[in-house]
Design a protein around this nucleic acid. Structure first.
Length: 575
RNA sequence: CGGGAUGUGGCGCAGCCAGGUAGCGCGCUUCGUUCGGGACGAAGAAGCCGGGAGUUCGAAUCUCCCCAUCCCGACCA
């Protein structure tokens, strides 16, 4: 491809609205342009990179035995009502109505669509296992799109769904996809950290996310340096230490006047004891209904865990007015003693507290000497606290470390959630109906591209791994006379004839200008044909990553280029 | 939805406080000289100053309303 016939609108300056490197470089290198908030257009060069990524995904999906489909983006409301998600997907789902009043969703995901499709296509155990996928656009009405292509309202996802006869089959499918994901990310040149994840609104059991460690990541990962335990903070557990007051003799429960002492910090100062002795009681609205969560004062609530425990769809901290109504007291004096008329859940650490302190549901009053079981009853309990760095690893007890990550892939075992709610069944050998079990596997394609750039760049620009580079070779022609231009043209023809993807900078510009652009857009190999060639027959072959340079004659060019490509590919395919 | 910031040629910005002919850098066009690390000179093209209303003889500038974008938070497969 000749640059004079192509369109690569590079920018010298950083766009004012881009904050993260990948976003800045994608715009500066002419890969994408913003259409409007949360919506990006891919320019020819960016699209090429995107297509390289999807090509890898297709190859690995095929290797894993998945079959490619293309599903509609407009999905009928009926479909969503069948699974029950028309009501539970919430505001994230774009909904539209046609001229006849028919309701649709712009697909935010395709579990329903694929489940219904597969239901109509299979009828026998012989049809299973089955793994179907597509690479298609997803629409989500994100509250706050940000970081360019990293979180946008419209994005490309590879989503796959497996259908198996039983759990053993699902395990096989799941492991096959897990393997495929590892290969995909490795081939794309990114290091991912698989972590345990929450299964969230999708339901199901086992779940892993593929994270790319990055300062701009939106997810917090907790990682054990000792045993390798890794989990999304939303999901992470931690080994509990002994509860406060252990070994003490339970004292009598007594009211203490605590004027204006409301926060845990105030209480610590007032009572002169550690934060874990307090039973912090928070009022939430779970699907609009008030509930109380009780945990020790040294901890924060993990709202994902709490929501899962409650079985709620929407969970938010209740406004002060609700707290006052529920506790009959100002905010800051809530507590589980004298049980309130709302559902109350306890963190598992509460049970062990001896002689705790908690709000009395009365203005300016706390209870001292509170003991679970005697002064209040624990009916519902679970792990509802947020694990943080420094907590003990649930597996081995070593203090957990923390990293930020970008989620590029997510796999999980869905179980029977959709096959049951949507009545999918096949006949087994004996003619009895059985319900298949599902798995679900997603990769954010655009986000993967951004993650690649986050991991592969320097202060001059992008450094594409060969596997996803829009072009393998960036040919810089520095000829001036007609004769020289013809000689560069000949090299270009040579590379093209050898089947190498080459971007030829045939513009009339100074060498420095061309080199700067070459560095910015970051093709893996730069071939320079300039004075060295016109006078001495030497062509410069430079690797973008690392910058090592070799000089070769015209006859040695192809093998030099091939050697680099082979070596880089081998590195990406290793291990 | 709360908090903060910003909207001025394609891009990056100044001008606004103290109202009076809309400016700079990059990019773009033409010509010439250069040309292996973002060259130089000359001559050009290009802007309802985010939108609306108001104050004023006069508004990019002051006032009010609205819109958009970005960041933080809440939220989120």
């Amino acid at each position: 491809m000749k640059l004079t016939r192509y369109l690569v609108p590079t920018l010298k300056e950083n766009p004012s609205d881009a904050v993260v490197v990948s976003h800045r470089l994608m715009i500066r290198a002419g890969l994408i342009r913003k259409e409007t908030a949360g919506m990006y257009a891919y320019l020819p060069l960016g699209l090429r990179a995107l297509q390289k990524i999807t090509a890898i995904i297709r190859e690995e999906m095929e290797r894993a035995g998945a079959l490619e489909f293309l599903m509609p983006e407009l999905t009928g409301a009926e479909l969503w009502k069948e699974s029950g998600r028309w009501d539970t997907m919430g505001k994230e789902m774009f909904r539209i109505t046609d001229r006849n009043g028919m309701a649709y969703a712009l697909a935010p995901t395709h579990e329903e669509a694929f489940t219904a499709m597969v239901r109509s296509l299979i009828s026998s155990y012989r049809d299973l296992p089955l793994n179907v996928y597509q690479i298609n656009t997803k629409f989500r009405d994100e509250i706050r799109p940000r970081f360019g292509v990293m979180r946008s309202k419209e994005f490309i996802m590879k989503d796959a769904y497996s259908f198996d006869l039983d759990e053993a089959g699902l395990e096989t499918s799941y492991q096959a996809m897990r393997q495929a994901y590892r290969r995909i990310f490795q081939r794309a040149g990114i290091d991912t950290i698989p972590v345990e994840a929450d299964t969230g609104a999708m339901g199901g059991s086992a779940s892993e996310e593929f994270m790319v460690a990055s300062e701009v990541g939106e997810e917090v990962l907790l990682i054990c340096p000792q045993c390798g335990y890794r989990a999304n903070q939303e999901r992470a557990a931690h080994a509990r230490k002994a509860s406060a007051g252990g070994g003490e003799t339970p004292a009598a429960c007594a009211e203490v006047s605590t004027p204006d002492v409301k926060t845990i910090d105030d209480l610590v100062a007032f009572f002169g004891c550690t934060a874990d002795r307090f039973l912090k009681s928070l009022v939430y609205l779970a699907d609009g209904k008030p509930v109380m969560a009780v945990l020790t004062g040294d901890r924060d609530v993990n709202e994902v865990k709490l929501r899962n425990l409650l079985g709620a769809v929407e969970l938010e901290l209740a406004p002060d007015s609700v707290v006052e109504e529920v506790t009959k007291a100002p905010v800051g004096f809530a507590g589980p003693v004298n049980a309130l008329a709302v559902r109350t859940v306890f963190d598992i650490a509460v049970r062990g507290v001896v002689n705790g302190i908690t709000g009395a549901n009365k203005k300016d009053v706390h209870f001292n000497g509170v003991n679970p079981g005697r002064d209040f009853t624990i009916k519902e309990e679970g792990d509802i606290v947020l694990a943080v760095a420094g907590d003990a690893c649930p597996a081995c007890g070593t203090p957990l470390g923390e990293k930020k990550g970008i989620e590029v892939g997510h796999i999980f075992k869905l179980g029977y959630k959709y096959t049951k709610s949507m009545n999918v069944s096949v006949l087994d050998e004996k003619g009895a109906a059985i319900t298949p079990i599902m798995g679900c596997y997603g990769i954010g394609v655009n986000r993967t591209m951004a993650a690649i750039i986050e991991q592969h760049h320097d202060d001059k620009g992008i450094i594409w791994p060969v596997s996803v580079a829009p072009f393998a070779v960036h040919l810089v022609g520095l000829g001036k006379s007609d004769d020289e231009l013809a000689r560069v043209e000949e090299i270009y023809a040579l590379l093209c004839a050898a089947g190498i993807e080459v971007l030829y900078d045939d513009r009339h510009a100074t060498p420095g200008f061309k080199f700067a652009d070459a560095d910015l857009i970051g093709m893996p190999i730069r071939v320079t044909v300039g004075k060295g060639y016109f006078s001495g027959g030497e062509i410069e072959v430079k690797r973008r990553a690392g910058g090592d340079t070799v000089k070769v004659g015209r006859d040695g060019l192809m093998s030099a280029v091939r050697a680099i490509i082979d070596e880089e590919r081998a590195r990406l395919n290793a291990s």
